[in-house]
Structure formats: structure tokens, C-alpha cells
Computed example of a mutant assay.
Amino acid sequence: MPEQSHEELLACIGREYYLENRSKVEIAAGHALSRFQVARLLNEAVESGIVEIKVRFPSHLSSADLGRLESSLGIGQVIVADTTGGEIQARGVLAKVAASEISRQAPDGGILGISWSRTLDVASRLVKELPRCDIVQLAGALPAEADSNPLELIQRLGHLSGGLTWPLWSPLVVEDPRTASGLRRQPEIAGALAKADSLDLAVVAIGAWKAGSSTVWERADPAVREEAVLAGAIAECSGRLLNSAGAPVESGLNERIIAVTIKQLQRTPQVIAIAQGEARAEAVRAVARAGFVTTLIIDEPLAKALNDMRDEEKNQ
């Protein structure tokens, strides 16, 4: 066989990384290279034009619209995924974007915390590589699909990062405040919750405090749900409720939650938040006002709803 040229090597590595979704470690092993050599070759492939990367914005959302959305929400980076098809398809697109951002922003030698949602579970399966970092579970478990649970999500990312994992061996919502208090004193749970004080990056999902828009809503009894609504709750993030001003809502539910707190998220330097569907527009604005989100990943219908709300307020 003729010897492979340097340009052919660049094309081969580019195909394996960008099209076949192989990690740099896998590519390095296949070509007798180091991971750092693979990274340099990928950069060279892009700079030389052998690999071309195109970013396509949704046709109805210009870069100016995106800038105005970021400004109105007070969030440094808003990523609008170009979603088409049904809810499950859109979730897959959002998950792919989230996986890319988790890989890009993961702190080398630091601490990454992540909550559970259906989209984040899919995203964790799409992450192919991480720098060495510790992984912290930010919210206890909720009953979900048989092939999806937060402990597996944490273990999956921990295997990729090679760092320590800090699982939360607890449900997200427990029966009463006394049980929750006892669980928080358990050494393993206390250790994981304490780790949330030192996060470098947190990844969370945003829900609206209403039926069908929050996985926690169904776990709270009707009296507790109503109490939270009357207290002004419109948004839910890792089981924590917020009002329209972005302030935490104190209710009976808050005392029964085993999860990261809003104050801990506000102390975290980088926070990626993901939300889907126009029904969560008010919730996203509430979470944005809490001031901890640095990267927001949303779908097109939600972006349109947020822009429409902004325009309506300007015209009042």
C-alpha cells in the first residue's frame, strides 16, 4: 500500500472525529499518536480547509435577534438549536448541542455538577470525551424510564473524565421534611451536597411549575403544589422553585428536596441551562433573573416565545 500523505492523514482524522463521532483518545490509539497530536492535527485540518465547519442559524432568527435575546435575558450566550419534527426529535437535537457544550466547557482538573432530565440523560450518552474532572450529582433521583437514571448518568460521565464521582444516594423528593433532614446528614449525601459549594461548571434543566412542564410537579401532592403556586412559583430548576423575579420560593416542597440550592448555583462560575418548548418561556425568564445561567440552550419555539414576550413588553 502507498504511504499515507499528511493531507490524507488530516482528512482521515477529521472524518473520524467530526463524522464518526470518535474521541481524540480513540483516534490517537488507532494512529499511534498522542491525544494532543490529534488535537493539533484537527486544528490544522480546519485551518487548511481540508475540514470545513458550517454553523447554520434558523432562517427566522438572525444574529441580531439572538443578540437582543441575550441582552433581554442578561445571559452571555444563548444557543438556539435548529429543531424540526416532533418533541422527541427536538429533544435529541438539544441533547446534541448540550453534549457539545459540556465537552467544551468542562473544567480541566475542576468539578462538574449535573442534574437529571430526559434531555440531559440523552446528552450524557452523546458526550464522547471530557478532561479529567470530578462529577457531582446535583439532584436526587426521580422515577423515570427503565433505561434512564441519574446514577448511571454520573457514572457514565465519571468514566469519561477519569475523576471522582459524587452520587446523591437519595430520591429528589422525599415524604416529609424530617426524612429529608435525616438524609442530608448521611455522610455520602452530605458530601455530595457540600461538593456543590465548589462547582466550576453546573448543568441543569429548566421546568415550568405546572402540569406537563416539570418532572417534579407530579411528585408533589396537590396541597404542596397549590401552596407553591400561591407563593408565586412559576419555574423549577433541580427541584428548586423560583418566582417571576427569580427569587427562591419558600414552600413545603423546598424542605423535602434533596438537591443543589439556588445559592450554590449563583456561586458557580459557569452554568449551562437547557429548556424546551414555548410553555417554559416565563420559567426561563424567571431563571434568567436569578442570575446564575451563563449559557442557555433552547429550541426554536421557545426562542420565538421569548422574543415575542420581549417585543410585547417594549410596545406596552
Results as ranks from 00 to 15, higher is better:
residue 9 L to P: 00
residue 9 L to Y: 01
residue 10 L to D: 03
residue 10 L to W: 03
residue 10 L to R: 02
residue 10 L to C: 02
residue 12 C to M: 07
residue 12 C to A: 14
residue 13 I to M: 10
residue 13 I to K: 08
residue 13 I to V: 12
residue 13 I to D: 05
residue 14 G to V: 05
residue 15 R to I: 12
residue 15 R to M: 12
residue 16 E to V: 00
residue 17 Y to S: 00
residue 18 Y to C: 03
residue 19 L to D: 11
residue 19 L to I: 04
residue 19 L to S: 07
residue 20 E to Q: 14
residue 20 E to G: 00
residue 21 N to F: 15
residue 23 S to C: 05
residue 23 S to Q: 04
residue 23 S to F: 06
residue 23 S to R: 05
residue 24 K to Y: 07
residue 24 K to G: 03
residue 24 K to T: 13
residue 25 V to S: 13
residue 26 E to R: 10
residue 26 E to C: 00
residue 26 E to S: 11
residue 27 I to L: 02
residue 27 I to P: 02
residue 27 I to K: 02
residue 27 I to W: 03
residue 28 A to K: 05
residue 28 A to G: 10
residue 29 A to E: 12
residue 29 A to Q: 09
residue 29 A to C: 02
residue 30 G to P: 01
residue 31 H to P: 01
residue 32 A to P: 00
residue 32 A to I: 01
residue 32 A to L: 09
residue 34 S to G: 15
residue 34 S to P: 11
residue 35 R to I: 01
residue 35 R to Y: 08
residue 35 R to P: 09
residue 37 Q to M: 04
residue 37 Q to A: 14
residue 38 V to Q: 00
residue 40 R to P: 08
residue 40 R to W: 11
residue 42 L to W: 09
residue 42 L to C: 05
residue 42 L to E: 05
residue 42 L to H: 05
residue 43 N to E: 15
residue 44 E to D: 11
residue 45 A to H: 09
residue 47 E to C: 01
residue 47 E to H: 14
residue 48 S to T: 15
residue 49 G to S: 05
residue 50 I to G: 03
residue 50 I to Y: 04
residue 51 V to E: 13
residue 51 V to H: 07
residue 51 V to Y: 07
residue 51 V to C: 10
residue 51 V to F: 10
residue 53 I to D: 04
residue 54 K to E: 11
residue 55 V to R: 13
residue 55 V to M: 07
residue 55 V to T: 15
residue 56 R to F: 15
residue 56 R to Y: 15
residue 56 R to T: 12
residue 56 R to P: 00
residue 56 R to I: 09
residue 56 R to L: 12
residue 57 F to N: 15
residue 57 F to K: 14
residue 57 F to E: 10
residue 58 P to I: 08
residue 58 P to K: 10
residue 58 P to R: 05
residue 58 P to Q: 04
residue 59 S to R: 15
residue 60 H to I: 11
residue 61 L to M: 05
residue 63 S to W: 12
residue 64 A to R: 11
residue 64 A to S: 12
residue 65 D to H: 14
residue 65 D to C: 09
residue 66 L to E: 02
residue 66 L to G: 07
residue 66 L to A: 07
residue 66 L to S: 06
residue 67 G to W: 03
residue 68 R to V: 03
residue 68 R to T: 04
residue 69 L to S: 06
residue 70 E to P: 00
residue 70 E to Q: 14
residue 70 E to A: 13
residue 71 S to L: 09
residue 72 S to I: 04
residue 72 S to C: 12
residue 72 S to A: 15
residue 73 L to C: 07
residue 75 I to Y: 08
residue 75 I to D: 09
residue 75 I to N: 08
residue 75 I to P: 07
residue 75 I to A: 06
residue 75 I to L: 04
residue 77 Q to A: 08
residue 77 Q to V: 07
residue 77 Q to F: 05
residue 78 V to T: 06
residue 78 V to L: 06
residue 79 I to T: 06
residue 79 I to G: 01
residue 79 I to K: 11
residue 80 V to A: 00
residue 80 V to F: 00
residue 81 A to I: 03
residue 81 A to R: 01
residue 81 A to Y: 01
residue 82 D to C: 07
residue 83 T to I: 08
residue 83 T to H: 07
residue 83 T to N: 09
residue 83 T to M: 11
residue 84 T to D: 10
residue 84 T to L: 12
residue 84 T to W: 12
residue 85 G to K: 12
